[in-house]
Design a protein around this nucleic acid. Sequence first.
RNA 1: GCCGAAAUAGCACAACUGGUAGUGCAACUGAUUUGUAAUCAGUAGGUUGUUGGUUCAAGUCCAAUUUUCGGCACCA
Length: 641
Amino acid sequence: MPIITLPDGSTQQFDEAVSVMQVAQGIGEGLARATVAGRVNGRLVDASDLITKDSSLELVTMRDEDGVNIMRHSSAHLLGHALKQMYPDVKMAIGPVVENGFYYDIEMEHKITPDDLKQIEKRMLALAKTKYPVIKKMLSREEAVATFEARDEDYKLELIRDLPNETEFGFYFHEEYVDMCVGPHLPHMGFVKALKLTHIAGAYWRGNSDNTMLQRIYGVAFSDKQALKDYLLMMEEAEKRDHRKLGKTLDLFHLQDVSPGMAFWHPKGTTLYRVVEEYMRAQLIQNDYEEIRTPLIMDRSLWEKSGHWDKFKDNMFTTETDNRDYAVKPMNCPGHIQVFNRHLHSYRDLPIRIAEFGLVHRNEPSGTLHGLMRVRSFTQDDAHIFCTEEQIKAEVQACIDLVFETYADFGFDQIAIKFSTRPEQRVGADDVWDMAEAALEETLKDANLDYVLQPGEGAFYGPKIEFQLKDCIGRVWQCGTIQLDFSMTQAERLNAVYIGKDNEKHHPVMIHRAILGSLERFVGILIEHYEGKFPTWLAPTQCVIVSISEVHTKYVAEMSKNLKKHGFRVESDLRNEKVGFKIREHTMQRVPYILVVGDQEMENGTVNVRARGGENLGSFTFSELVDLFTTDIGKLGRVSA
RNA sequence: GCCGAAAUAGCACAACUGGUAGUGCAACUGAUUUGUAAUCAGUAGGUUGUUGGUUCAAGUCCAAUUUUCGGCACCA
């Protein structure tokens, strides 16, 4: 005799077990039609599921994000339904929900083409339009196995085998198609209205590169057609921000197949890169770091000793001369320890913070390269802090503060934090790892920061905190990192030493830290973040002086010279073109300020200022102009002053 | 590295089933001396990523290779 409590606090009593849908029908026909699933005592269940005891119940509709995700999940089944009709030999693997949609991994002879995708999508929508009911049945292990054996679903059978303790399996029947799933799913397919298959890709079975490669079909699905349209429009807008595209149109950098994964920086891109680097250099000085430079190529034995060779030799560039093997540095830490060890240190010297804009090379697998985001040659704003165990927390805290301050100056406030612990392949004893992990985690907790734990994802020498930023279409890129390392400084590794209070030799703790991470990647993210409309302090060209006719040439030259004296990045446009034409070009190049100079301005000793975005700020004298620029540049990229 | 797709002038793209590689913008030259998102006219520009093959004939078909794109795996 279940008593059901609804979200408004009202209760309903039933004589016997009742399904979610029946309760919905009792409340109203319209609500029943809209019901996708139920949330019973906080747990999502199918609309057909029976409630047997006293429970709270919320009806889940497509207005609920959970409802939309259920529809997405059922859309994956729908994809299976359509595929099986069109390609009877297809074997289904897994089909989960992802952000905005779903995918299904499948195996079959025929390689799906983009054209096929359209046909499959058409079939899916036609099937959905019939609003056929989805019927759920719980099957015993034997029945489940028999069902999939009859259908040659090898992958599904493997999934069942891997759940040895499970006695019952949820099966969802979509007309002649059947899929196994914990659910919940739609009561009928009429809820699927706004769906698009987006792309095909390869994916390893169970995410393991030793396994077969399957075909993965990605799709997106939304509650209604407008939401789908909005999403597709948003993706189009996002593509316009792509740093690879803007890198070309704004003449910032290019990539060329003579050097895959290594950027050629053009003058404008170099300026942008340099401003970022100089900002970081100023931060180093403020925060008591010492900047150094170390060799690009070092003897292989050093990398063997550090442990990098063992783990990463396949990804290291090497060279050989005079019968010696060298490796191009993939990290800066071994070099920094050489500089630390140039003389004996006292405990009084610690912490010692050694920084380098370190150019590193990593032979990343060819398939991973991606514009400036994943490259083979990049500069890290790297630093290593040598300190005592007592100093760890204060130093890590200072690093975290610096990360947030720096990101804020660049206009980022959405930052995800990950905390990664010991991996399987690692150096160092477990009690040392215990200590290192505890130190990092405590600092995160003390700072009241939300973070996601990633067990087993740490570096081979220590646990790490990672700071991640999103690119324009939601891909997440790691930028900053703070890693704790008790191993590299030990005698059997690179043997960094200081003399303690006890007059004995000790090995310092080393904190590896980078704020921006890879300068290349960070610049790429900046390009996308600002859509190339950089705040004035970053803009490669801060203003262009545009002459109206030839008679103004000299005045423009003088104005340009004076602005450059103040350190502004100025270009002049003296071309024999109409003003409208010149303004159009510089606007498209996203220059923050266009200064127009004609007879009037020359007479009054002023310039007419047009701000990016088209606003005319009016006439400015030279000193007013300097004030305007100085104030603007001083704001850096901060969202609020 | 794996799966799939793509590569044509500086850029964006075209060239039906194999039959003389085009268009727009940019560039260059000339005219125009111009007031806030495109002045007009002309000129030049390509061994169709590379190598090999099929064919009377290849941008187009086949093979290899390089790079790029979308994912997957990887990411010190």
